[in-house]
Amino acid sequence: MLKSLFSVGIFLLFSTNTFAQFSDSVHNQLSFTGTGNYSKTNTAKTYLLNNSLAYKLRLKKIELNSVNGWIYGSSGDGGLTNNDFTSTMDFNIRKNTHRLYYWGLLNYTTSYSLKIRNQFQTGLGAAYKLWDEKTNWLNVSDGILFETSSITQSDSVQVNYSTIRNSLRLLFHYQINKSITFDANGMYQPSLEYGGDYLVNAGAKVSIQLKSWLNLTSSLTYNKIGRTQKENLIVAYGVTLNNFF
């Protein structure tokens, strides 16, 4: 899998054109992000790889996004800490007003660190931009999700269940001098059926554009699962390769 991700990055690196943003004739974006961290002492070493491949299609009133991410990590004693995979597809439909849009979501997750064997989510909702400028915005969204999951709770007990969740999300995007971009997000998904069953996700990312196709990237991500009481905090840095066409 590492070889496949590396091959995709090389393909993007040598096939990018001069476009650096969407326009009337440019509707597609393909990007590969390769980040991670590594630490070594006299007695131990740890490492973490955080890779993602994303595709975006943007038309006048419709936007389609697909993101596939994989996190793999090992601790100093050689034990596995992360082997987490997420695949997400969502679409946004804008109406006559630019601030309001509707969204749909399909998501699959399996996570060693969060004790999620399999998790599938699908749902619909609406979002509104509280602050909207050309390159800067803040929006809030809410919707209903149906989820079916297989998780590992305490004492290695496997639990299979389904539930309905409310999904509340906040997204922030800010750009400085066309070269520095800051993104932040927060999401809270409580079950509408089971107390103490919730999902929390928060993150922040800073990107510095070096070329139209190359960004330096640093990110921080936090996840917590109420049912398993597992959480992770991931800090990574690396590069993002972009191709607009």
Rank of each mutant, 00 (worst) to 15 (best):
M1Y: 10
F6N: 09
I10Y: 13
L13K: 07
F14L: 09
N17C: 08
F19Y: 14
F19S: 10
Q21I: 05
S25V: 14
V26R: 00
H27N: 10
H27L: 11
N28L: 06
N28T: 07
Q29C: 03
G34Y: 09
T35C: 05
G36W: 02
Y38L: 02
S39H: 14
T43E: 15
T43K: 11
K45W: 14
Y47W: 15
L48T: 03
N51C: 06
L53K: 05
K56M: 14
L57N: 07
K60E: 15
K60W: 14
L64W: 11
N68T: 12
G73L: 07
D84G: 05
D84P: 06
M89E: 11
F91L: 12
K95A: 14
K95Y: 15
H98M: 11
H98A: 14
R99F: 15
R99W: 15
Y102G: 03
G104K: 05
N107D: 14
T110H: 03
S111W: 04
L114Y: 04
K115T: 12
R117Q: 14
F120E: 14
Q121T: 08
L124S: 04
A127I: 01
E133H: 07
L138C: 03
N139K: 01
V140Q: 06
G143H: 01
I144M: 12
S149Y: 15
V157R: 01
Y161C: 00
S162A: 05
S167G: 01
N177E: 15
K178S: 08
S179E: 06
T181A: 10
T181Q: 13
F182I: 09
F182E: 05
N185A: 07
G186C: 10
G186F: 14
M187C: 06
P190E: 03
L192C: 00
E193Y: 05
Y198L: 00
L199G: 01
L199C: 02
A202W: 02
K205S: 12
V206T: 03
V206H: 00
W213H: 10
L214E: 13
S219W: 02
Y222G: 02
K224F: 03
G226Q: 00
N232Q: 08
F244H: 02
F245V: 01
